[in-house]
């Protein structure tokens, strides 16, 4: 990439990050009712409300309050939870690792299953495997994550009693228990991703197999498996990478659902609990953190796409 395009990209990123901060700050500012009362929660004394109003500087202009908030956020201060008295940044740091683990492991599982299934079903378009995959894929894509997760709990935790329905010990305390606790959440998260990836791979593989150069490869005597692996995976990986904004958005939302369903202490659960307790600074901080992570991941995926795609790469180099 040229310097100019890097600069343009950086400028755009700054604009988007700025807008994210405005929206996140704005949520609290446009909320109906008294933010001080909402922050303290129901049952706060009048004196406490007055104190918080003063500390929030609610009498000052909005733009000044935004500036203050942004400066402290940049300095790593997102306020304090009224519930636990813990700094919001600390709670976020405690909760992020498990969410990241969940998302990463389910991505790996989804891809590891989708690649063979997608390529296999493309070998014979319209064949049995292909049909099962296309019907099954449509079904899996139509089953919302919370419904799939609840069904998994019913089958594997309640009926068969193979796996725990809730909770997860830390890996250090109980490695086996940790892995067992991870299985159902990961399956719930990976189901939709798997169906999505398998469909894309199947489509890519079919397009590739219709190309002339594949016939050449076949006539050369290359086995189908080698052809599929060599010629399909690269263009398909490009489509997969360009899908990242959708799949990550889906996974982050999915993590909220799955962490609630299986009572896992991740960021998603933190947000749901914060909403239930009206602990709005925690919610605000978590939304900001998640949105920033999301934007960064999308930017990263965009760079990867450019790096993978020779057309875009040479266009920018030239």
């Amino acid at each position: 990439m040229t310097l100019a395009s890097v600069m343009r990209r950086a400028a755009r990123l700054l604009l988007v990050l700025g807008a994210i901060s405005i929206v996140t700050f704005g949520l609290l500012a446009v909320m109906p009712g008294d933010p001080a009362l909402a922050l303290l929660g129901p049952g706060a004394t009048d004196a406490a409300v007055a104190e918080v109003r003063a500390s929030l500087g609610l009498d000052r202009p909005l733009i000044v309050r935004y500036g203050d908030w942004l400066l402290s956020a940049l300095g790593g201060d997102l306020g304090t939870s009224y519930q636990t008295g813990q700094p919001v940044v600390t709670s976020l740091a405690d909760r992020f690792p498990l969410s990241i683990e969940l998302v990463l492991v389910s991505q790996i599982v989804a891809l590891a299953v989708a690649v063979p299934v997608g390529l296999w079903s493309a070998r014979r378009p319209g064949g049995i495997v292909d049909r099962i995959c296309s019907v099954g894929g449509l079904g899996l894509l139509s089953l919302p994550m919370f419904a799939l997760g609840s069904l998994l709990v019913y089958v594997f935790a309640v009926t068969l009693k193979w796996l725990p329905a809730t909770g997860i010990p830390s890996f250090g305390d109980d490695p086996l228990g940790h892995v067992q606790g991870l299985i159902l959440p990961v399956l719930s998260l990976a189901g939709w991703q798997f169906a999505m990836y398998a469909q894309i791979l199947r489509g890519e593989a079919r397009t590739v197999l219709a190309e002339d150069y594949i016939e050449t490869a076949v006539l050369k005597g290359l086995p189908t498996r080698a052809i599929l692996l060599r010629h399909t995976l690269k263009p398909a990986s490009l489509s997969l990478a360009s899908l990242v904004p959708i799949t990550t958005g889906e996974l982050i939302g999915g993590a909220v659902v799955v962490e609630t369903l299986y009572a896992l202490p991740g960021v998603g659960r933190l947000m749901v609990d914060a909403i239930a307790a009206r602990d709005l600074l925690v919610l605000q901080g978590a939304v900001l953190a998640v949105a920033v992570v999301f934007v960064m991941l999308n930017l990263f995926a965009d760079v990867v796409v450019r790096w993978l795609d020779p057309r875009i790469r040479s266009h920018h180099a030239g």
Binding site: V16, A19, I20, V23, T24, L27, P245, T248, G249, E250, I252, G253, V256, V257, M271, V272, I275, L283, Q284, V287, V290, A291, F294, V295, N298
Partner: peptide
């Protein structure tokens, strides 16, 4: 800007 929030998170918030 609108797509820079994960959908469910924005709706929740």
């Amino acid at each position: 800007v609108l797509v820079s929030f994960p959908p469910l998170i924005l709706a929740m918030a």
